[in-house]
């Protein structure tokens, strides 16, 4: 269980997240939704210790999250990465093996074979020699997913993985996440589009600065909860497109 207690995060002096208390069970695929500026990315970044929190404790199992960071693979938003860095697709995926390599240790044969397998899983083997700025948005996202796979983690945090990518890439990534979920991995995905929520996730975290709701899709992903996160007018617009949602 990932246990978040009394999480408060400031963003340039303004509260970005207030009083978030949540127990996230392991082994599920979980969507994090909420309007723009609701603190979705801030939420996972503060869990990982990338941004400072004003207060709060985060534990995984019984230990502080800082002790098991190597077991969490993080796929950031594309805009957070320097795409002009002199690095090929293969070497980018190889950096996924770094967290579990000891200091002074270089990736060896085992790691390199793992990288080849991870590239195959997202169908980017033929791009292996390319520098990463020469890829399409979807290809690039698959590279970052492959890197996360190479980390052989048990928990995956993904920040808006489906933004600006083609349908083929989206399908590959969705299938892969399903497979990981079947293997018992925990997957947290920041997601901005309400349409595929029911199809992609077991559970949903609804955020808007505060925790609005958390639970199974069937009970939690309701128009009432969505409205209280997005505001009633916007909530209605979003929900109209959803059809079946009650």
């Amino acid at each position: 269980m990932i246990q978040v207690k009394n999480l408060n995060v400031d963003y340039f002096g303004n509260p970005a997240l207030e009083q978030v208390d949540i127990d996230i069970p392991l082994g599920y695929s979980i969507g994090i939704i909420g309007p723009n500026g609701a603190g979705k990315s801030t939420f996972i970044k503060s869990l990982l210790g990338i941004i400072k929190k004003r207060s709060g404790t985060i534990t995984v199992g019984n230990s502080d999250i800082a002790l098991c960071q190597k077991d969490i693979a993080y796929v950031p938003q594309k805009s957070d990465v320097d795409l002009t860095f002199p690095i090929t697709v293969r070497d980018t995926v190889l950096t996924g093996t770094y967290p579990k390599l000891k200091l002074f240790r270089r990736p060896g044969k085992k790691e390199k074979e793992l990288v080849e397998r991870c590239m195959e899983m997202v169908d980017i083997s033929d791009l292996a020699h390319k520098q990463i700025s020469n890829l399409s948005g979807g290809q690039l996202q698959r590279v970052f997913i492959a890197r996360a796979l190479a980390q052989q983690a048990n928990i995956f945090f993904l920040d808006e993985p489906f933004v600006g990518i083609d349908l083929v890439s989206e399908k590959i990534i969705v299938n892969l996440l399903k497979k990981l979920r079947e293997e018992g991995k925990t997957i947290l995905v920041v997601h901005h589009d309400l349409h595929e929520v029911e199809e992609y996730f077991d559970k949903v975290i609804i955020l808007n600065r505060k925790l609005i709701a958390f639970g199974d899709i069937s009970t939690t992903f309701s128009s009432q909860n969505i409205q209280s996160a997005y505001g009633s007018s916007l909530g209605n617009v979003q929900i109209k497109g959803l059809g079946g949602l009650v």
Binding site: Q69, I72, I87, Y98, P99, F104
Partner: peptide, 22 residues
Amino acid sequence: SLFYKELLISSFDPVVSKAYGL
């Protein structure tokens, strides 16, 4: 050369480096 992989990843992707505790 000793710190090559750490220097590479912290230059290339400081956010992910921090995320795994570097």
